[in-house]
Amino acid sequence: MQLLSTRRRRIATAVATAALVAAPLVGAPLVGAVAASAATATGTVDTTGNPGPALTVRAQPTAASEAVGKRSDGATVTIVCQTYGQQVTGTYGTTRIWDRIRSGGYVSDAFIRTGSDGLVAPLCPGTTTPTEPTPSAAVKATIAAARSMTGKYPYSWGGGSYSGPTQGICCSPSGIDDRQTVGFDCSGLVEYAFAKGAGLRLSSTSRSQYSDGPRVPISQLRAGDLVFWSSSSRTTTGIHHVALYVGDGRIVEADRVSGPDLRVRAFSTGETGVMPSVVRPIG
């Protein structure tokens, strides 16, 4: 899609919502609620490939720990408990969750398909749960500004600016004319939130917001960061959506979906098309 210099043009696509997700804390994993009353759980090794390489089992929850075995790609493992260790990026995103398996040792949950981005087994004895640091006042105000618009306005293609909701434009890739719809699109909501909450003027398209930076790896995601979605190639030119990460595994976004278009929802870094870097307008 060609971006025009005078009008906002973005592609808004519905993003799959995970039923049970959590998000990386600052230097922390995608974590979620412990599965109720689960004594053990099972998972499948997935190291990517056909088949992928075997997954190394470690004596401790760190990649530098002694190797105590291997599990082949596609193998089923029994998870007796889970803990937090070294942050690892793998098939299922970035996480510090490690799974202690019945046969002994630990494997990174980034390579285990369990059907959830959160915990699926009890915490191992002695585990300390990571916590997010307190966001700055500017970040809190930005998040509050974005949240204040949720449920109040519809999605409007090309709508929204640093000053608030506006009429949209014509026409979306599917031919929708939003010239009579007052609201926000994804980058319009972001533009408003940072102007209202932190006094920052951001660019007006999702692609330019990503290009403007500053960027950090998504493994360092924290409240106040901007998350971006791209085409399957995950290139800058394929970016079509942006959302504000608000902490605790959730984002606030404007999207043309069933239900409220401006909403807070659960988020996983493993979602299709998520860019490997986030933008941190507030340092």
Score class of each variant (00 low, 15 high):
97 I>R: 15
98 W>G: 07
99 D>N: 15
100 R>W: 11
100 R>Y: 13
101 I>D: 14
102 R>V: 15
102 R>N: 15
103 S>R: 15
103 S>D: 15
104 G>I: 08
106 Y>W: 13
107 V>C: 14
109 D>V: 09
109 D>F: 14
110 A>F: 12
113 R>L: 12
114 T>K: 14
117 D>H: 12
117 D>L: 12
118 G>Y: 14
123 L>F: 12
124 C>L: 06
125 P>E: 05
127 T>A: 13
131 T>K: 11
132 E>M: 08
135 P>R: 07
137 A>M: 00
137 A>E: 01
138 A>Q: 10
140 K>M: 03
141 A>N: 05
142 T>P: 13
144 A>W: 07
145 A>W: 06
147 R>C: 11
147 R>Q: 15
149 M>Y: 14
154 P>G: 10
154 P>E: 09
154 P>T: 06
156 S>M: 04
156 S>F: 01
157 W>E: 00
158 G>D: 07
162 Y>N: 08
163 S>R: 13
163 S>F: 07
164 G>A: 10
164 G>Y: 11
166 T>S: 07
166 T>F: 00
166 T>Y: 00
167 Q>Y: 05
168 G>I: 00
170 C>K: 10
171 C>P: 09
172 S>D: 03
174 S>E: 09
176 I>W: 06
176 I>C: 04
176 I>H: 11
178 D>I: 00
179 R>P: 02
180 Q>W: 00
183 G>P: 07
183 G>K: 06
184 F>A: 01
186 C>A: 14
186 C>F: 00
189 L>N: 01
192 Y>C: 00
194 F>R: 09
194 F>N: 01
195 A>T: 10
195 A>N: 15
196 K>Q: 15
197 G>E: 10
199 G>R: 05
200 L>A: 07
201 R>W: 07
201 R>S: 12
201 R>Q: 12
202 L>N: 06
